[in-house]
């Protein structure tokens, strides 16, 4: 395991901020009517935060952590002094092997590669057909991710090419590449420490998601802020995810940008969506759908609500939406 390189994070943060300031063109207009919805009408929940549930260290998978969870005093974002858990995650999933990312040629099937999503509500299997269809999908004939002579897909299959492409400012030579990195490049995973308030403290004003992490998954993987898809696509690259919506770069290691169900390790006996992680404010994050495949209808602006068993908690967005929650309802550790 490798420790996070803090000096690299600062410029990365600046970059993400900069690209986020963009106002780009392109919109969908359709003549349509609403006919179908999938909702969880029977849920009797609200969005009050009167009832909170403490963080439970035993919810984490044993191999998800590189050391025992300890307690220490912390200062929260609202100025309160509190007790926090110090959680050192392994930075690699404890419950599965990291999957494949990029297809190798234009005949590859869904089983031979991972997925891609751009935040607009669709998940694509990165098949050979997907690679062939990129100019149509993104309405730009500059897309050419494969060799027309051999049918082989351009993949960043060395550490050097991974380093040059798995970043917001993709080096020009790696444009029109499917980007992937091996977990071996980061020694099996980048461990990271998180301070999370043991007892979540709801605040009167929600806090926005920044450009860093949103929380931690119960299997030891970072829940990252939305991926900078406009920058990725602007460089004619696909930053391929494995089927669990995770991918690797040399700064953050393996991390999630969406909730694909791979970290939903805490099944709920009442049919509620399974728990998959904790947000940095200590509130639990659960899957989007309950066991009947229904999504709550009463989520607040942060994608949270309250019930009698779990108190206030979040429901992750769909994997295709390139995010987990909308904001922090509670105070985070400084």
């Amino acid at each position: 395991m490798r420790k996070l390189n803090a000096p690299i994070l600062a410029p990365l943060a600046v970059c993400i901020l900069a690209l986020s300031l963009a106002a780009c063109n392109g919109s969908d207009t359709q003549s349509s009517v609403v006919t179908e919805t999938t909702t969880d009408e029977g849920t009797t929940t609200d969005t009050s935060t009167d009832f909170v549930v403490e963080v439970d260290p035993f919810n984490f998978e044993s191999d998800a952590l590189i050391s025992s969870i300890t307690t220490q005093t912390c200062t929260l974002s609202n100025g309160d002094e509190a007790s926090c858990y110090k959680i050192d995650i392994a930075g690699a999933p404890s419950n599965y092997e990291i999957g494949v990312f990029c297809p190798r040629n234009i005949t590859s099937t869904a089983d031979e590669a991972g997925i891609w999503f751009d935040g607009t509500g669709e998940v694509y299997d990165i098949t050979g057909d997907f690679i062939l269809n990129l100019p149509t999908l993104y309405n730009d004939n500059h897309w050419q991710l494969y060799d027309e002579g051999t049918g082989l897909v351009n993949v960043t299959d060395t550490q050097e090419s991974c380093d040059g492409a798995a970043r917001p400012n993709v080096e020009e030579q790696y444009q029109n590449h499917c980007v992937e990195c091996s977990i071996d490049y980061v020694d099996g995973g980048i461990s990271e420490s998180f301070l999370i308030p043991i007892t979540p403290v709801a605040t009167t004003q929600n806090s926005s998601i920044g450009n860093t992490n949103v929380g931690v998954a119960l299997n030891g993987v970072v829940l990252a802020a939305p991926a900078p898809v406009e920058a990725i696509l602007g460089a004619y690259t696909i930053a391929a995810f494995d089927d669990c919506a995770g991918h690797i770069n040399l700064v953050a290691g393996y991390h999630y940008h969406g909730e694909a169900g791979c970290s939903q390790t805490q099944i709920q006996s009442d049919g509620h969506a399974a728990m998959m992680g904790y947000a940095l404010d200590g509130f639990g994050i659960f899957g989007m759908l309950n066991e009947d495949g229904l999504e709550p209808t009463d989520l607040d602006e942060c994608r949270g609500h309250t019930d009698d068993t779990r108190g206030y908690h979040y429901h992750a967005a769909d994997v295709s939406e390139n995010m987990f929650i909308g904001c922090f309802k509670g105070a985070t550790a400084r």
Partner: peptide, 18 residues
């Protein structure tokens, strides 16, 4: 990173409806 990302982010691919 900041300058290059700003330029790239204006490329526009219809993936920014949210």
């Amino acid at each position: 990173l900041a300058t290059s990302c700003s330029a790239l982010s204006h490329a526009g691919h219809g993936s920014n409806v949210p």
